[in-house]
Design a protein around this nucleic acid. Structure first.
Lengths: 254, 254
DNA sequence: GTGTGTGTAG
DNA sequence: CTACACACAC
């Protein structure tokens, strides 16, 4: 089974990219973030036409997440119940016996900012939410844009990024607290010592210069970990015309 | 000699269109309107590279005019001297013994509006300016976007446009007052009874539906009129990708 | 509808 | 650098 995540940074702009990527990579499941389109603007038929079911949690301009799946989506839920907020960052669904949670985590702007304080509260809520999901569903996958680079190996210039947003010790501890619930960072698990970036800033030719961060992740619950075979970042999609600033990440399970 | 006019509606966006049109049509002179770029942003080398001299009167965001010519441009002047205004709507130059005045005339928004009153004042100033130019230069060509459809034949639906801006009796009288200085509307002179549109609103598929207006004109002084051979509107350029809403108009002189 | 500027967000 | 909203012009 192939399961992937991609922050498309506007599905309006990136619909052709998404369709092309699905056709070329044939994942069973694709989690999308930053749709940036309203609930009634989701191009469902474009995906059903090529054999994917879809569930989405849309919002105009900002955020917005979706799950595409070859198999039907069941028990679809949106948002974190405890967290009363208008931002559409979470959608969850069960596909066969696997619980999929697609997340677009808060960016946080800068360490110490108001948005950073919100990021902390948001990750605390995500942690509680995942504790509950894991209790209900032994086979759980949490994937999406975490806006956290968990280790220095995930950063092209760790010194420059030290204590900066996406890389700060606080954020990394929030990420570790998720793992402590019984989740495993699949790419890090397979390749703990190699650099794999998933996001390159649009500015200053960061992609051409291969200067990126790994902030998109696929986290597996313990019962799924033995099935893990491969995790790959498809950076070719970052090189397409008018690309997203993120590349898709795909895990293969036996 | 071939002399043309084109309102490109942003030379930033339409530079490729302009270069392509020059290559394909090889005019001796091309007058451009609505450059929408600042004086220091004009892409001069792009034109010199393909054999055209250029003079321009640039303005950020709005207006802006230029003259391109295979022969050198002399006695270049900008604006209407009498009219103290910041809008860059006029550039004039002498090419051999012909005086070329490129004009982007005021639109006027709606009959009776403040901008319409400005349009009246502006055309009065243009009239005085042209009287002076014609007195100095027997061979004179005034061309550009006049924002006036001189006759009902120049309008796809004269009833609908009756008394509307671009077609009102007042505006048509301002146009006629220009002709009374000794200028001839070259296209109307050759084809007084046929419809030739030069502008189609971007909205409502007006170009596909062939619903346009003739508001871009090439006016010749009396001494040039005997040399007039042909005037053509190149509406194919309006059908290109990401087109200007205006088509180029080209006159051929013996 | 298309363009431009400004502001916000990433 | 890219995307979006809004405002304005045509």
């Amino acid at each position: 089974m192939k399961i992937a995540t991609w922050n498309v940074n506007s599905l309006n702009v990136r619909l052709p990219h998404t369709l092309r990527w699905l056709q070329e990579n044939q994942p069973d499941i694709l989690a999308l973030q930053e749709l940036k389109l309203d609930q009634d603007k989701f191009p469902e038929t474009e995906f059903t036409r090529i054999g994917y079911h879809a569930a989405w949690n849309g919002q105009k301009t900002y955020n917005g997440v979706a799950i595409l799946s070859r198999q039907p989506l069941e028990q679809v839920t949106i948002d974190i119940p405890e967290l009363n907020e208008p931002q559409k960052r979470i959608i969850a669904a069960s596909i066969n016996d696997i619980r999929i949670i697609c997340a677009y985590c808060v960016n946080g702007e800068a360490v110490g900012s108001e948005k950073f304080a919100y990021k902390e509260r948001w990750f605390a809520a995500l942690n509680a939410y995942m504790r509950s999901e894991l209790a209900q569903h032994p086979k759980t996958i949490l994937l999406g844009d975490f806006n956290i680079a968990p280790h220095d190996i995930d950063v092209y210039d760790p010194k420059k990024w030290q204590d900066k947003v996406l890389c700060s010790p606080q954020e990394r501890s929030w990420f570790q607290q998720l793992l402590q619930l019984g989740l495993t960072d699949s790419l890090h698990h397979l390749y703990p010592d190699s650099a794999h970036y998933t996001w390159w800033d649009y500015r200053m030719n960061m992609f051409k210069r291969k200067l990126g961060l790994r902030i998109d992740h696929i986290l597996l619950s313990q019962s799924l970990l033995p099935a893990l075979r491969e995790v790959q970042v498809d950076s070719t999609a970052r090189g397409w015309e008018r690309p997203s600033d993120h590349a898709p990440v795909m895990a293969t399970l036996a």
